[in-house]
Simulated scan of single mutants.
Amino acid sequence: MAERPTTNWRRGVAAEAAELAAGTLDPDCACMVDLYPDELLSATDAVLDAFEAELPPLAGGDDEQVFAVVKRVVLALNAVNEAHDECAFETDEREQLCLYIDEAFTEQGVDVTALTARHGLGRHELTDQWRDW
């Protein structure tokens, strides 16, 4: 399965904590815990859990089924972002989440390029219709 962005974010939090513990990072320069608090990571993981649970039957699904799953995951991520004052997912996080969604579909046999092209979209526009983050 594609690596979740939250796995990467947790790795960054742990690495920064190790640097702080070792005394190799000035505490005034630490920011990972503020960028990725446990509440944000847990809420994002809950959304991605639900998304992943919907993936297996999609390989043979039609476009409407796939777009319905995209809509649900994006709207749920919008809610997470709203709960964090509209600043949970900045540019880097947005790119990681969109790539993860694309890769997860691709791993399940969904041809994202063909899917989006059939609807007059570029591959990287899969989430744009619903995405607020």
Rank of each mutant, 00 (worst) to 15 (best):
57 P>E: 05
65 Q>N: 09
6 T>D: 01
63 D>A: 13
105 F>C: 09
127 T>E: 12
56 P>I: 05
5 P>S: 09
132 D>L: 06
14 A>K: 14
107 E>A: 05
125 E>Y: 00
121 L>S: 11
36 Y>H: 13
96 Q>I: 00
28 D>G: 06
62 D>P: 03
67 F>T: 03
124 H>V: 06
28 D>N: 09
50 A>F: 01
22 A>T: 12
121 L>Y: 06
97 L>F: 10
46 A>L: 09
28 D>P: 00
113 T>N: 09
80 V>Q: 11
86 E>L: 03
23 G>Y: 13
29 C>G: 10
53 A>E: 08
77 L>S: 06
77 L>R: 02
102 D>R: 09
15 A>S: 12
103 E>I: 05
2 A>D: 06
77 L>C: 07
131 R>K: 14
82 E>I: 13
52 E>K: 02
129 Q>D: 12
57 P>V: 02
8 N>E: 14
63 D>N: 11
18 A>W: 07
17 A>H: 10
82 E>R: 13
22 A>D: 14
40 L>H: 07
43 A>N: 06
73 V>A: 07
125 E>P: 01
105 F>T: 11
47 V>L: 01
4 R>I: 07
37 P>F: 03
118 R>M: 05
22 A>F: 07
114 A>W: 11
49 D>I: 04
69 V>T: 02
122 G>P: 08
124 H>S: 09
128 D>Y: 03
102 D>T: 11
91 T>F: 00
35 L>S: 10
8 N>Y: 14
29 C>D: 15
26 D>K: 05
23 G>S: 13
26 D>P: 04
57 P>W: 00
21 A>S: 15
22 A>K: 10
7 T>A: 15
75 L>G: 10
10 R>K: 15
54 E>I: 00
26 D>Y: 02
63 D>G: 05
